[in-house]
């Protein structure tokens, strides 16, 4: 009986692979919903480790990122946390940046150094953003003592980082009005879009882990709006990526569907958790996850360089293990916050 169930194939996948993808999709969905990022840098390596070819892994990952971003954006749209105008303005820069980034890769490939340069850039970027998040979380911890957890992130102005307010203070026309009423130069918005696109095209990733911090720290929106708008950006760049790889016929819809079944639920829970959980409680874990991911990608590059396959498996375990830890932390803090805000006083 069990054997006959296990031999059934749905979506072109066996039951154990479906279960794996649904669970993995759930985890990624929680990140997407909560942080507005965390898709392709987890999914692509996972598919590569499972033996999918690079074009199928990247193409399917892009299509999955698009689907999850659609779901998470709709959820954030309901909460009024998506600045569509800002997202659309950034899109022009993102598209040009992706084109420039991919040309750069092809140029490096001609020189025979594309893999090394892209690998090193990926490791450094993940590490840099990981340090930024971890440091920011530690400073916040020191700054607000025990006040965390029971406030709704203060006023919008307080929620915009100081560096962003400083950038906003430079009047470089044309100035665009953001959804929260603040102003940002079109040059800043285009520069951020171009920079994010360049990274996406260069590294072959969705770029959410760069896009969200860039919107928050450089353009200067509230964290909630940065998450929502970053998701909208992910939707657009995911669509462009899915279209490009779809034309080559390398997207595995079975994988995409199984991942989406999990991520749709995860994104819902992750988005809802933002209403209960203070980001500061989990940001440090996310920063640490990025640092571990940086180490994991570094180990994977070493594996390819030294020809030691076990290092690749170690890299995968690090990636999944750290993601699982952060996902559990979000759910744990979410459950605690629900108990605190809705529980019956004893």
């Amino acid at each position: 009986m069990i054997e006959s169930i296990l031999s059934v194939e749905l979506l072109g996948l066996g039951p154990e692979l479906i279960a794996l993808f649904v669970a993995f999709g759930f985890m990624v969905g929680v990140f997407f919903g909560f942080f507005g990022m965390g898709g392709s840098f987890l999914v692509t390596p996972a598919l590569l480790i499972l033996g999918y070819s690079a074009p199928v892994a990247i193409g399917s990952s892009m299509a999955f990122v698009f689907g999850t971003a659609v779901i998470a954006t709709m959820k954030h749209h309901d909460a009024g946390q998506v600045d569509y105008r800002l997202g659309a303005l950034m899109f022009v820069g993102i598209t040009l940046g992706i084109e420039l980034g991919s040309r750069l890769v092809f140029g490096l490939e001609v020189l025979g150094i594309a893999n090394v340069v892209v690998g090193v850039a990926y490791v450094l970027l993940l590490a840099a953003i990981g340090v930024l998040f971890t440091r920011s979380a530690l400073q916040t911890d020191e700054g607000d003592g025990d006040g965390a957890g029971d406030e709704e992130a203060g006023s919008e102005d307080d929620d915009v980082p100081a560096i962003a307010r400083r950038i906003q203070s430079y009047n470089l026309p044309p100035m665009m009005t953001l959804a929260d009423g603040s102003k940002a130069s079109l040059w800043t918005i285009s520069g951020v879009g171009g920079g994010v696109g360049l990274v996406s095209g260069f590294l072959g990733v969705g770029g959410g882990f760069v896009r969200m911090p860039a919107i928050y720290y450089v353009i200067g929106t509230s964290l909630a709006a940065a998450v929502g708008t970053s998701l909208f950006g992910g939707l657009m760049s995911g669509a462009v990526g899915a279209f490009t790889y779809g034309r080559a016929g390398v997207i595995d819809m079975g994988v995409v569907t199984a991942l989406l079944v999990g991520s749709a639920l995860g994104a819902r829970i992750g988005s809802s958790a933002t209403a209960y959980v203070n980001e500061d409680d989990v940001t440090i874990y996310f920063g640490i996850m990025l640092l571990v991911a940086s180490a994991a990608v570094g180990i994977s590059e070493l594996s390819a360089w030294l020809g030691i396959p076990i290092l690749d498996q170690l890299s995968f375990l690090l990636l999944v293990g750290s993601a699982l830890l952060v996902c559990s932390m979000i759910l744990y803090h979410g459950a605690l916050a629900v108990r605190r805000t809705r529980g019956v006083p004893e």
Binding site: A63, F64, F66, G67, V70, A239, A242, F243, T244, Y245, G246, R247, I251, M253, V256, L260
Partner: peptide, 8 residues
């Protein structure tokens, strides 16, 4: 490609 995007 458009069909894939539509399907997703």
């Amino acid at each position: 490609a458009l069909a894939v995007i539509g399907l997703v």
